[in-house]
Design a protein around this nucleic acid. Structure first.
Lengths: 118, 118
DNA sequence: GCAATATATAACCATCTGGAGATATAACTG
DNA sequence: CAGTTATATCTCCAGATGGTTATATATTGC
């Protein structure tokens, strides 16, 4: 489960769209390619990137190679991001604090107070 | 808030390490560069990528340009991933189901039963 | 075996990326 | 002003990326 490969694979909008499509179930390569103004080899390349990142797996159904989403790398990416959750929540907390302070200042003194220049 | 730029920025281990460092507070470029076997220009390039993705901002402190983490893009990335949460949770549910079935089959019949082919 | 369909691979191209070293800019220090 | 420190920018390079067209492979159906 390689975060480099995972985030790199997710950095392309075509590949994110492919994953969105696969979230609803298995889809063949041709069917995946249809919505895009892309050649079939280009789509195959994207699928190879996704497969290499472990984000999809493929089976065999006649001549089709249906793709299936594999969520483990997404979960790993989520776990990485989770470590930063407190930061953005903290930022909201700070914003709330700031808004609260501004409200109090506005109530205490309607004129614009000079800011300390640090 | 551009997911392409965000995921692309997160795809590099040096940049993820930089973010991890910044999670603890503002750090100057030299201090950020110290742990890496990288030239200063290389670190500046990484910082430019992070800044372009909105993942960091920079202020001025004398000759220093301290970097600060900006969590908004991380939150956006998290929101994108969140849409797939049910998939990996579902996969665990399926795995649990499968293990349960295998256990029952093993209990019912010790020999290897033939799998239905699709 | 042959044609058709689905997919993969090859060869090529333009652009991007991550690194380097050298140099420029900006701000402090004397 | 001159020297030092912090950072940015320029130029160069090798390799990756995303696209193309052409071609190869695999599977089904006759």
């Amino acid at each position: 489960m390689n975060l480099d490969a995972t985030f790199s694979a997710l950095a392309d909008p075509t590949r994110r769209a492919i994953l969105a499509r696969l979230a609803e179930g298995e889809v063949s390569v041709m069917d995946l390619a249809a919505p895009f103004a892309l050649s079939q080899p280009a789509v195959s390349k994207h699928l190879r990137v996704l497969e290499h990142a472990g984000l999809i797996s493929r089976s065999r159904d006649g001549q089709r190679r249906p793709c299936r989403i594999e969520a483990a790398p997404l979960e790993a990416a989520n776990a990485w991001l989770e470590r930063y959750r407190e930061i953005w929540e903290q930022n909201y907390a700070r914003l709330d604090d700031l808004l609260e302070i501004m409200k109090q200042e506005a109530a205490a003194e309607p004129s614009k107070p000079k800011r300390k220049k640090k």
